[in-house]
Amino acid sequence: MSEQEHSEHIVPPATYLAIILTLLFLTGTTIWAAFVNLGRFNIVVALAIATLKATLVVLFFMHAKYSPKRTKLIILAGIFWLALLLGMTLSDYITRVDYRGVRFPISQVSQQLPAQRG
């Protein structure tokens, strides 16, 4: 058979309460951070906080912390493949330079090179 079935780990409701309070606090934090001008780092902060929240949900609400290694492997595989899909596709877009040396996105071409448009 495969690896031994773990004995079910029961998480007490007090832990859940602590987690939900943390999640609500982080929601407040992300709204507050959105109103601070961090330039291009706004999205980084927003995604970092969202990932922290998602991690808490996965680890505690979904019991991944107490699950067999196989479950953790599946979660990591999911994240990895999502990263492949997003990362490798966007790697095409962010490295695109056309024959005039203009970087993607092309939509900015009209503003950068108005003279070249017929």
Binding site: W81, L84, M88, S91, D92, Y93, T95, R96, V97, F104
Partner: peptide
């Protein structure tokens, strides 16, 4: 097999660097 898909798109205007990879 998941890392090769844009070889169907070499002539569609994707980035040269991506095509190389």
């Amino acid at each position: 097999g998941f890392l090769v898909w844009t070889h169907h798109m070499f002539l569609t205007g994707q980035s040269t660097y991506a095509a190389l990879v």
